[in-house]
Amino acid sequence: MKKLLDLLNDNAEFTTAQLAVMLGISEQEVKKQIEDYKANGIIRGTKTLINWDRLPDSGVRAIIELKVTPKPETGFDDIAKIVMSYDNVENVYLAASNSYDLIAMVHGSTIQDIAEFVSKRLSTLDSVIGTATNFVLTTYKQGGICFTDDGEEEEQRSLVL
């Protein structure tokens, strides 16, 4: 039933009735599947994709690269958990890269705000041996959705029979 996940990933607004029709199963089955996915931690939540750039004073975002010394027992998990615990951290990834190990996406009200967060909260952590801060200027696409107007799919097909 990966198809159900594909459809939800594409658009969370489908009603269970529509999902049932598209998949050719009953609405009850759709509901049960979704419950199962939630119970198994596969579906973690449902959010709205917002282009904050369109709002005045909506703050700034940055992608922070962290070079970390892994711990003997827990590797990168412990330090990731600490980074995750901050509310202004939106995403945290472990990367396979030569230059850094963890990537965190953070938001703040100003550039100074974020700079301060990095220098006081992240750089000072025991295992963190280096950081690099990349401020986001424009979000073109997020979560598979185009955030710019000119990227809106324009019909290129001609009207012929």
Partner: peptide, 9 residues
Amino acid sequence: DTRRRLIVD
């Protein structure tokens, strides 16, 4: 086929 089901319904 997915689209067909949605639109017919």
